[in-house]
Design a binder for these strands. Structure first.
Length: 418
DNA sequence: TCTGGGGTCCTAGGACCC
DNA sequence: TCTGGGGTCCTAGGACCC
């Protein structure tokens, strides 16, 4: 029998902070996105207080202060490390695991003789809680979509919920809106409602051919999955990346080409690191910059350009060189730039890269890149960097309320007794 | 003053080939 | 008067996810 478990960490970012700062327990706490822009994680108390997910901080800040709520900048180094710790526990408790996001994994629990699924779900929850301090919910079902649905119910039912019997599945889906089904977003849920499909059960009972015709094969699969027919397999190994994007809003509006170039150099450095960590090389790169489209008084401008290389590369210096030439074409004076970014496309495995007989601009320095990565890995990001990134901090992101990197830096390790 | 970042997949339509 | 058929590749846009 097929059985999937979806384990997700409750309020993951807030929970990570609470592990190291117990004073946050019981309080209204939110975590802010990059640049302290939006609310991206909320403690249960913050949810109860009606702070909406995704709300711009500047909008909810007065209310948050009124109720003595706390806002923290996101600390991705900490969350990434905690995520890896949680994942290691799953590896011990399931034969295969798909890492679905930073706070969610699918586990394959099918065809294990004598396994009591719910008891195993409780074991998973207890072990993660005890070993990492992170609370999780476990949903179990015969398809990934039903495991997701069960996970919603797990939150209200002591952390574990399984959906296998037909009657139980129908009852659960009847009480669930179609818009809350995994794979149904706001556009499709609206369209479904126009066709009289309001509940998850109605979607399960819809004619898959009708869904295929009116929507797409993607929603048709969802429809089958709700019926208990598994169409979406567990991905044991992550598929190779197709693109790498690094982009950020600036801490302050950027007006000069020099600041834009420093930003792009920094983003490309990050992107090239990601590239090498996946043992990939890129043949196409693209850069973009735009003004703040929320602003009513600013003149709007947005532009992007891409560059194709003769030979794929993973060399930071070469990528920065092309990105800076490209950004000169993107930059137009007279605008207040809000955000810029780089994309790496046309990715291929680095070791099988074809060299070009007549290539003139190729620079392939694997030893240098490896040395830089090793030093930065040990001494901290940016210990060695390219000069084009600059030393000023004018354009860098705001992150004014960030907690220490408790688990990955010796000098920021938590101290007992104070 | 202030509104995130990073991905994937599918489809339709146009260009192009023989 | 009459103007083919089959196929691939690429891109833009739309949908979704966290």
């Amino acid at each position: 029998m097929r059985a999937f478990a979806l384990v997700d960490c409750n309020n993951f970012y807030v929970s990570c902070e609470r592990v190291f700062n117990p004073k946050l327990e019981g309080r209204i706490v939110v975590i802010l996105s990059n640049n302290d822009g939006n609310v991206i994680s909320r403690s249960p108390e913050a949810k109860a207080a009606g702070i909406p997910m995704g709300a711009p901080w500047h909008e909810v800040r007065p209310e948050l202060e009124r109720v003595s709520g706390l806002a923290l900048s996101s600390n991705y180094v900490l969350y990434g490390d905690m995520s890896a710790r949680v994942r290691m526990i799953f590896d011990e408790l399931a034969p295969s695991v798909e890492v679905y996001s930073i706070d969610e994994c699918f586990l394959d629990l099918g065809n294990i003789a004598g396994l009591d699924l719910e008891a195993h779900g409780r074991e998973i929850g207890q072990r993660v809680r005890q070993w990492t301090g992170i609370p999780v919910g476990v949903g179990i079902g015969p398809t990934k979509t039903l495991a997701k649905a069960a996970n919603r119910l797990a939150k209200k039912n002591g952390g574990v919920f399984s959906l296998f019997e037909k009657a139980a599945i129908r009852a659960a889906l009847a009480g669930m809106d179609a818009r809350d089904v995994w794979g149904v977003g706001s556009r499709w849920s609206k369209k479904l409602e126009e066709r009289g499909i309001h509940s998850a059960l109605a979607l399960a009972d819809a004619d898959p051919r009708f869904i295929r015709k009116g929507f797409s094969v993607v929603l048709q699969r969802t429809c089958y999955e709700l019926q208990g027919i598994s169409c979406i397999a567990l991905e044991k190994a992550p598929p190779p990346k197709k693109q790498i994007i690094v982009s950020r809003a600036f801490g302050k509006k950027v007006t000069t080409q020099q600041d834009l170039k420093e930003g792009v150099s920094y983003y490309m450095t990050r992107a090239a690191e990601k590239l090498r960590s996946g043992r990939l090389a890129a043949r196409t790169l693209s850069v973009f910059a735009h003004t703040n489209h929320f602003s009513k008084k600013d003149h709007q401008y947005s532009s992007a350009t891409s560059v194709s290389l003769e030979v794929p590369t993973d060399n930071t210096g070469e990528l920065i060189h092309h990105a800076l030439e490209a950004i000169e074409r993107v930059y137009k004076p007279g605008y207040r730039y809000h955000k810029a970014g780089v994309m790496l496309l046309d990715l291929s495995p680095a070791e099988s890269t074809q060299t070009e007989l007549f290539a003139t601009d190729s620079c392939w320095q694997p030893e240098l890149m490896q040395a830089i990565d090793t030093i930065n890995g040990q001494m901290g990001r940016g210990t060695i960097r390219y000069g084009s990134e600059g030393f000023r901090t004018t354009w860098r992101r705001k992150s004014n309320h960030c907690s220490p990197r408790y688990t990955t830096r010796w000098d920021e390790i938590p101290k007992a007794g104070n």
